[in-house]
């Protein structure tokens, strides 16, 4: 029963990883940009949520209604003003620029919020749970996060495959020049894709903040989990990212069941195995 519990908790944890990773997956799938500041933006979102929660006295989940739209706007601006310029130079430049952004964000947050760690007051969400059986219970927060991740990925996939703007995003991802000559403003469309990615980063940052404490330097460690989820699932595939997140979560939970110190390492080992055996990830189909 302990093992069943570990698997269930692992799957739910995987939802959090998938939520966190899908923005990374989207930015890579569309713009071919590996956003090394992805984790730091998530931490920034958590700080912003904290400010909203304490300032406006709203519950944690409500803060997402303010932070996610703000982050969407931020994503559009960051893409148009910073990332696009580096894309115009070369793909490697985007790595340097987002790495630089990561350092700037970490130090900026250190200045603004000090090195103390914080966590979001998740209240009853973190404590409360469904008891499925005497040994198996599922926390409200992890269930909400998992449901949000699945709904978000399904919604994004639907948007990309059906909506006119979604199709333009896919066209620009396939061939930016050809998309331009059929009338698509590629920079705008990339900005929209970044806006979506940043909105999901905001949600993930808030979810992370509800699970555990965060500090200005927490971004890069979290980024690794997002990377692993994306690579395990197959780069650029959103459903793959969900699957990758779940596999990572389950591996960590099972590892922790063996030995409490082995959890994260077990996740890394699965990631390493996938990288060695199936470098293109488990999902071969590119969906974006």
């Amino acid at each position: 029963m302990q093992w069943v519990n570990a698997i269930v908790q692992g799957i739910l944890l995987g939802g959090l990883y998938a939520l966190f990773a899908c923005g990374l997956s989207l930015m890579f799938g569309v713009m071919r940009v590996v956003n090394l500041a992805h984790g730091d933006f998530a931490v920034l979102a958590a700080y912003l949520a904290l400010a909203v929660i304490t300032g406006l006295h709203v519950p944690m989940l409500w803060s997402a209604l303010i932070v996610a739209p703000l982050f969407a706007g931020l994503g559009y601006v960051v893409q148009r003003v910073i990332i696009q310029r580096s894309l115009d130079v070369s793909p490697v430049t985007t790595l340097l620029v987002t790495f630089g952004l990561s350092i700037v964000l970490q130090n900026g947050m250190l200045e603004a919020f000090s090195a103390n760690s914080h966590s979001l007051p998740s209240g009853v969400l973190a404590a409360g749970s469904f008891r499925l059986s005497p040994q198996l219970s599922v926390g409200y927060l992890s269930l909400i996060v998992f449901a949000a991740a699945v709904a978000l990925i399904a919604g994004l996939q639907l948007f990309l495959s059906r909506a006119p703007l979604g199709r333009r995003i896919r066209a620009a991802a396939d061939d930016p020049e050809a998309a331009a000559i059929v009338g698509t403003d590629v920079r705008h469309v990339f900005g929209i894709a970044a806006a979506i990615a940043f909105a999901t980063v905001a949600l993930a940052g808030i979810a992370f903040g509800g699970y555990s404490s965060f500090d200005p330097a927490a971004g890069p460690q979290r980024l690794i989990f997002a990377f692993e989820a994306v690579v395990i699932g197959g780069i650029g595939s959103l459903w793959g990212t969900l699957l990758g997140g779940i596999i990572l979560g389950v591996a960590q939970a099972l590892g922790a069941q063996v030995d409490s110190g082995f959890g994260v390492l077990a996740g890394h080992l699965v990631f390493l195995a996938v990288l060695a055996l199936r470098p293109s990830g488990l999902f071969r189909v590119r969906l974006t």
Binding site: P164, R167, R168, R170, A171, A173, D174, D175, E177, A178, A179, I181, V182, G183, T184, D185, R286, T288
Partner: peptide, 19 residues
């Protein structure tokens, strides 16, 4: 320079939409 990951119809639909 077709949009490789889209169907033929979608390729043309993107053009009809914005252009």
């Amino acid at each position: 320079r077709s949009f490789e990951h889209m169907t033929v119809f979608e390729n043309v639909l993107v053009a009809a939409g914005r252009g």
